[in-house]
Amino acid sequence: MNQPLIWLHEEALRVTHPVFRAAPEGTRAIYVWDDEYLSQLDYSLKRLVFMYETLCELPVEILRGDTVSIIKQIAPSILYIPATTKPHITSTMSKIKSVANVEVIPDENFVTITKAADIRRFFPYWNMAQKTAFQKNGGIDA
């Protein structure tokens, strides 16, 4: 029977990320070493080593291949993905959505902002953010 799966990407490399709480306990977690994706980013060796040594400390399998094909092959019942703003990852995510049932899990909030912030300049944002920025968990009960 198909099982749930966590696809971890390079912006969510910790076991306390909410993605691990969202998925059922013991869910298999993978990171995909996707040569095409990585070479497109053109990162220097420094970045790759930093990322790889971080991955090695995590309970995650590192699989090499094309991300979408690997996920298609595993065919998870549901795929949990940490939210990100990185365009390269969000575009892969859109492709994955056509082959798997995806749930995107945001990271812990830094602040609680109810009204849409004016995002052209920092200080209108800060005026709202500072109400909860000085509170533990950004004002949210953990």
Binding site: Y43, S44, L45, L48, F50, Y52
Partner: peptide, 26 residues
């Protein structure tokens, strides 16, 4: 760490430069 670095080099022969003295991990 050296053996990890050699391994990453084989995975990404195109990656330029040397590793950083700043190490990753929790």
């Amino acid at each position: 760490r050296d053996s990890l670095i050699s391994y990453v080099k084989t995975l990404a022969p195109w990656a330029k430069g040397d590793p950083s003295p700043i190490e990753g991990g929790r």
